[in-house]
Design a protein around this nucleic acid. Sequence first.
RNA 1: GCUCCGGUGGUGUAGCCCGGUCAAACAUAGGGGCCUCUCGAGCCCCUGCCCCGGGUUCAAAUCCCGGCCGGAGCACCA
Length: 485
Amino acid sequence: MSKYTVERRVHEKDIGLPPLPNAEKGKVIMRFAPNPNGPPTLGSARGIIINGEYCKMYDGKYIIRFDDTDPKTKRPMLEAYDWYLEDIEWLGYEPDEIIYASKRIPLYYDYAKKLIELGKAYACFCKKEEFKKFRDSGVPCPHRDSEVEVNLDVWEKMLEGLYREGEVVLRIKTDMSHKDPAVRDWVAFRIIYTPHPLVGDAYFVYPTLDFESAIEDKLCQTTHILRGKDLRDSELRQRYIYEYLGWKYPITMHWGRVNVVEFGKLSTSLIKKEIESGKYNGWDDPRLPTIRALRRRGITAEAIRKFYLSLGLSESEVNVSLKNLFAENRKIIDPKANRYFFVANPVEIEIEGLPEERTVEIPLNPNSNEKRILKGERFVYVSLDDFERLKGENVRLKDFCNIILDKKAKFVSYELSMAKKGKNIIHWLPKSFTMKCRVIGESVFEGLVEKGVERELGKVVQFERFGFCRIEKIEEEVVAIYTHD
RNA sequence: GCUCCGGUGGUGUAGCCCGGUCAAACAUAGGGGCCUCUCGAGCCCCUGCCCCGGGUUCAAAUCCCGGCCGGAGCACCA
């Protein structure tokens, strides 16, 4: 496996991820911890890729942990668990372990009890708004000083279901005068009677993310936590637990907020709403920034990977354009994508004076010797755009002949030299060799395509002078998803 | 309001910790040229940046202070 080491080194240099602090080869343990309340998005991909890449780089252990401990406000979707696993694999990473927090709830109860016994956690009956006042003013609430026995008793009763939702919570004792209000006596457990999509009504006392995550990171012996800046304060909160239990907190790094200009601020819950309202046709609607939508469009995993590696671990918040992703993708697909003629909004023309029908051979791809064959015949289609723009002018039907463009076009010659180099060369289709084709992008294009695309099902091709598209369906008509130009 | 974190060409990233080699590099975008029977690719050239103000220093993108701007946290969300 020494070859592997060499490859990695080259790889590392290539992508330029900085070395991880305190990382030892073979001893790194990292995790990506999503809540599966929808499929992974372009945003989730950053966590998947950065963590996954470092694990590869250091021969580390990669854990996927579903932080699914709120069946109500951030309700997980049953299908989304597998969607995550699928997309992670598609992006090129193999998890070494998969953890479902909702299946490990009793584990968290043990630590809760321990913390109560240590006097570091207490049952609090304050209403939300009441506690907010205490927190904002830095004053301890009346329950903070309850005896350990009382807290234990209330905790037991919570677990027995003797309280209503919202009546009582378990808080971690931190420091009510901590200068950052966000860390003051935070909630570790609350009561939720809504059944959980994965574990049903097995539990109704659920840990908050901060508690669950703190415990899990210890149990999994996570060495490095890499996540978005939005979870920065989690560290401050969780460190209290680590201190009380005598644990060592992992090394953390945080990246800034990513705003993809073309998508704006589309949260998973907002997308869900817009799918329900019918604005989008599903989670893989090509207009959406989900990984499955991008895949359907023909964006490669490699492009997404490079896109995020180029962002690195900067803590500044960024406004990036999809153009960068597309540029990466184009570099990858361009050498491989076969070329075809797609004529949008076809206009039929007749070439008057055509001396003979000719078979024209066109390279399938600029870098290959393989050819596709079109018949140069009297009746052909050109796109409405070209027709209107160039009507009356001398144009060349690419690889076929020169004509004066019109409904009744005049044949000029076959000579390439007659065409102005690089100018007025348009694509076309013989009337006898077409299939209907619909291209779905920002808008829908109806047109005709070469019959030869039949061999490209599932692949990304380039419709010359139009753009890259992924051939999704071939039935009576071809359905293609627009990738980018 | 309180707390934390950022601010390098149009957009990102590197450099900042350990001041000089940075009159600042790379990518992308934009402009121009070459090549090509694609509005794609490739090749070449060009445009363009250290938020502001003080301070420390022989020397500051880099250290200190103060502003300004942006973002995040302050949920019984993750």
